[in-house]
Amino acid sequence: MDCSQAWNLIMEYFDKELPSDQEQKLMEHLKHCPACKGEFDALSSAFVEMEHMKEPAPPYLELKIMKRIKKAPRKGEIILPLVIAPLIILLALAALGLHVISQGGLSDFLAQTIRFLTISYRTFSAAIALLEQMFNSFYMRLSLTVLVILSAIFAGIYIVRNIRKAKTSFNGG
């Protein structure tokens, strides 16, 4: 075995992946090769030393971090979807309204709004009617019943599991 082969085995040794027969071969080489032995010993003791060098974090950190977190609760999530999205729609509607008013005056704007409302009302009621027809059909009723039963079962399992979890965490402290 030459020294570069030995070095590869040393690497596997420190990866804790060296098979025992290979380890014996390595140890045999180290007996006769002071250069490899020197590097091997230096690394072994360095890695042991590193374990001792580990230092725990200062004990006050947890409290400090928690204080700062409570002072500045995470707002991003609540604000972004709930406020910004409706705001954008509202702004868009306002812009559209202003545009229509500037183009054809107030009476035109009102007429268009009424037309828009009637169209959306008709679309909406048409959709509802279609849905009603679908739900009244035999298959729809059957699959709906199955769905309701299944979700009732899942809800039951979920509730029981949560009660158990709450109990164990309560008992476990």
Binding site: K54, E55, P56, A57, P58, L61, E62, I65, M66, I69, K70, P73, E77
Partner: peptide, 25 residues
Amino acid sequence: CLAGRSEAFEPLIAKYKNLVYSIAL
């Protein structure tokens, strides 16, 4: 934590503060 209960973050700090501190150090 995501449901807004910030006190649930404390055990996470306790568990990983040594790792974070050690890497930083």
